[in-house]
Simulated assay, not measured.
Amino acid sequence: MNFRKILQNYTRCYNHKKYWKRRFAIYNPNISRIKKAFYLYYIKRTEGKQGAYLGTKTENGKCNFKDSPILPHGLIGIVISAQSIIGSNCQIGHQVTIGRSKGQSPTIGDNCFIGPGAKIFGGVHIGNNVRIGANCIVCTDIPDNATVVLDKPRIIIKEENYKYSIL
């Protein structure tokens, strides 16, 4: 690791590898309580400096991420409810909100792209390989391999013979 990268991680207060390693470690039952408390302190401090909340709660004993997501802009402004479930290999832009509505939280599949400023609320299920555009507000279920665009959601599904249909 070169000096420039170390300096960037120190000034940004977010080291992706370190953050997610410690985040997944707090759900491991074989780690001592003192180490978990130290890791939780680091996670909350990092989220606080970045203006983010990624649903870190140890009471339920399970993590809401299958794998660490791809965060091209870091943690800046991301808010995710503790009950939501997010699949592996998801890319989440800055200022994204994934929240509860009417006591239910979203479930997001694998290989999804969630654009900057997107909002996802309620007990919706978002399929695999879904692309959600910037500033979209999603309150309905999205099928697999779909694209969601505009602030008033328009779902575009690519069919087998390369024709597009709009739901």
Rank of each mutant, 00 (worst) to 15 (best):
N89V: 03
G74T: 09
H16D: 12
Q50S: 14
C63E: 06
S88M: 10
N111F: 13
K5F: 14
Y39P: 04
K18P: 00
T147Q: 05
Q50T: 07
G77E: 11
H94C: 14
M1H: 12
V148G: 02
A118Q: 03
P29D: 13
V130T: 05
K17G: 08
P106D: 01
R23W: 10
D67F: 10
L75E: 02
K5M: 12
N89G: 04
Q50F: 06
N111P: 05
R22M: 13
C136H: 00
T147M: 15
S32A: 15
S165T: 15
I137K: 11
I98K: 02
T140F: 08
S84Q: 00
I114C: 08
R45Q: 12
P153Y: 05
Q83M: 02
R12V: 10
I126P: 01
L7H: 05
Q95L: 15
V96Y: 00
K18L: 14
I92L: 00
F65D: 01
S81D: 13
K152P: 03
A146S: 15
T46C: 12
V138E: 02
K158R: 15
G61W: 08
L75A: 04
G109E: 02
P106M: 01
R12M: 11
S88C: 14
E47W: 03
K21M: 11
M1C: 05
C112I: 12
I34H: 06
F38G: 07
N145W: 06
C112Y: 06
A25W: 00
Q83I: 06
E59Q: 08
I76F: 14
N161H: 14
A118F: 08
G77F: 14
G103C: 04
I70T: 07
I76R: 10
H94L: 06
W20V: 10
N129A: 02
R4G: 01
A52K: 09
C136P: 01
I166G: 00
K102R: 12
K36N: 07
C139R: 10
N64L: 05
I142F: 01
V148D: 00
N135H: 10
S101M: 12
R45E: 14
S88E: 13
N128I: 04
V149S: 07
Q8N: 11
F38S: 11
G127C: 10
I142H: 01
N15G: 03
G133E: 01
T56V: 15
T58W: 02
I76P: 02
R12E: 14
I31G: 05
S105H: 02
I132K: 01
G109Y: 00
G127W: 01
Q95N: 14
N145Q: 11
F121W: 13
I34F: 13
Q83C: 03
G103K: 02
A118S: 09
K5R: 11
C90H: 01
N30Q: 10
V138D: 00
I126S: 01
F113T: 04
F65C: 06
